[in-house]
Nucleic acid binder design. Sequence first.
DNA 1: TCATAATAAAGAAAATTTTCTTTAAATAAA
DNA 2: TTTATTTAAAGAAAATTTTCTTTATTATGA
Lengths: 217, 217
Amino acid sequence: MNDTRKYKTKSQASEPTLKRLPGYLYYLEQVKEEGIINISAPVIGKELGCDPTQVVKDLAVTGIKGKPRVGYNTYELIHALEDFLGFNKINEAFLVGAGNLGSALMAYQEHQSLGLKILAAFDVDEAKIGQTIGGIHILEYNKLFHLSGRLNVKIGILTTPNNVAQEVAEDLVNCGIKAIWNFTSAKLSLPKEIIVQSTSMSSYAAVLLRRLNDADL
Amino acid sequence: MNDTRKYKTKSQASEPTLKRLPGYLYYLEQVKEEGIINISAPVIGKELGCDPTQVVKDLAVTGIKGKPRVGYNTYELIHALEDFLGFNKINEAFLVGAGNLGSALMAYQEHQSLGLKILAAFDVDEAKIGQTIGGIHILEYNKLFHLSGRLNVKIGILTTPNNVAQEVAEDLVNCGIKAIWNFTSAKLSLPKEIIVQSTSMSSYAAVLLRRLNDADL
DNA sequence: TCATAATAAAGAAAATTTTCTTTAAATAAA
DNA sequence: TTTATTTAAAGAAAATTTTCTTTATTATGA
């Protein structure tokens, strides 16, 4: 009756918190480079321009506790964050749609620091099939079904044209994919247990352009 | 004393609303293709999987009013959204850092539908200078200062390595750039009137991977 | 023409997220 | 050893965002 898990099972960490965590991680890695062993929430907050209380609450999701008057152990905190986010293990993924954006994501080296490993890319374009970008082979789309049977890949990166996004997403789900990183503008209708993370460039452009126009009076 | 504009001047539209608007726009364009003249908030909500009241409130920021029992005029609504978001005018931008991600954004055709026009790209890498990607020339970084004097470009797209992001951002500001679309992981410290929109791939990866691990029990 | 049903708009309530306040713990200095 | 100071943690309050309710409007059908 009272439908608490209305959209999807909630992580104990809120989405805003999760989105901030990589920022802490990046900053802490810089701090570690400088040889700083302990770091306090007020310092992190000042550096990253956010509330120190928020820093404490965000970092609490990792289970790490700081010591009063000392702060957190930099090394320990980095490990806990990587562990919590799953950045320190190999998260295998398939990519579908080796167009401009897809090719870029294949070439984008920083995925590795997120523990994200694109095993293979798929496309229907004959001209692209057989090519290698960033060490990743572009295979014929139909091969997706064979490969997924042998491998236990859980993440699908969707960079197809909008008009085939739904269809491809369904194929991915049928291939055992549990989570889809959707770079298209399409709204995907999938079983509710499938995790869909939509990254729409146009959403960001919207905020940027509107703020700019607001500022221009 | 009471610091209401703590971060930046607020648009009348909230950030969550702004981020949803391109989704409505994309859907409405599909609807228009089908020749549907009027569309109601409940229908939009059902199709996009969100609350109809939220649809009404989101669309209200454009100033367009719907008619009871009829809904909104599709064509009028599309125009109002494009107008409000600034997608129907040419928003000129410079891009700095023609690496993997930068090259992708240059080649990414869909920016045009956002009214975003990358006039030129800049890099310090001799191997890249002189190349053309997606019809955009890659120029020597120092040329940025000359070109910005002649043109009145307000948007800077930042796709440099993290360690030079702050420095380049400051250069962009000195060149008259008012808004920076930041694709690096660096936290930028800039004058508060500069609009910074950070699009961190790692934030999305964080949410996706964590939710996946949560689901895996 | 009038009644009915569907829908936008405005306002209220609920939920979520962020910020503020208090408390307790621990280090460093006296 | 004791005191003062800094800081994390827990709880409270405020702000924001989303959802729910009510009201008023308008097209459709009788």
